[in-house]
Nucleic acid binder design. Structure first.
Lengths: 142, 142
DNA sequence: CTTGACCTTTGACCATAGTCTAATGTTTAT
DNA sequence: ATAAACATTAGACTATGGTCAAAGGTCAAG
């Protein structure tokens, strides 16, 4: 058995010790076993757990959302359909985020094409993008 | 000329009055003209300005990033190449976010396929996705 | 000319997600 | 055996992005 102290866990997972304890307080990770001297000891598996939290957070999930998913996993009363429902909602949210990001991406890409890197910024078409909202700029025709 | 009080501006832009004043304090919108009685009055254009902030924020840009872009626009010393550089960095960031979201999206999509909505959650493959980190689960082969 | 809807300011408060400090205890290495 | 490196707690502090309340001034309608 490969047990880790909080410092080693944190290092392996790429977070700080404070963050580990913070997640524990928030119920995102289980309260770990303790040594005789009250040190937290974690199984190796907690590393993956923490990395998952880290990645999911980067992708825009809140700690509460991540916690919900963990709870769903551990709840013996939760059914596959509960998980399915949750994931389907999330799939929609992610699709929408990807769409919006793609919109702003092509707006910015067009900008770099027409903004050739010479002359004053006042001639740069970024002004147009900034002045209208994104929805409008989508149907903005030349 | 179509001038707006703060309430009308906020309503048109879909934000609260407090948010407008907050953005003003943060330097995201210009300090507006005032009436004799010290009321803020805005030109119609501020609506688009606020809507842009709102949308950009939804897409994950921080208020400081948005402010930077506005500053760049207004700075007479800023050149097209500054704007171009900024937008190119942002383009990279957005592409990366889209990629990461696409990864988690397909993970979730696979889940809903294999998780058919019957039986206990313990049999649901979401456990696998949660146990490894996303990078690992990408190269996880059966 | 008053009532209600609007505006003003200052400053407190909230949630999210940590981050740091102080005071103290434990383990490890030389 | 002692110093360095690590652990513990409680609680204060940070940044971001607002949101609300108090106490008051202004404006438009009846």
């Amino acid at each position: 058995m490969n047990e880790l102290t909080i410092g080693k866990l944190a290092k392996k997972a790429g977070v700080t010790i404070d963050t580990v304890r913070f997640y524990e307080r928030r119920g995102l990770i289980n309260e770990p076993a303790r040594t005789q001297s009250n040190y937290r000891i974690y199984p190796e598996e907690e590393v993956a757990h923490l990395r998952f939290i880290k990645k999911a957070k980067e992708l825009g999930f809140s700690l509460n959302e991540i916690k919900q998913l963990f709870k769903l996993q551990d709840d013996p009363k939760a059914s596959k359909s509960d998980v399915k429902e949750w994931t389907e909602i999330k799939i929609w949210e992610i699709r929408r985020r990807i769409e919006d990001l793609s919109k702003i991406l092509s707006a910015l890409e067009q900008l770099t094409v027409s903004c050739d890197g010479h002359g004053p910024v006042s001639e740069c078409p970024i002004i147009g993008v900034l002045s209208g909202d994104l929805e409008e700029s989508k149907q903005h025709h030349p």
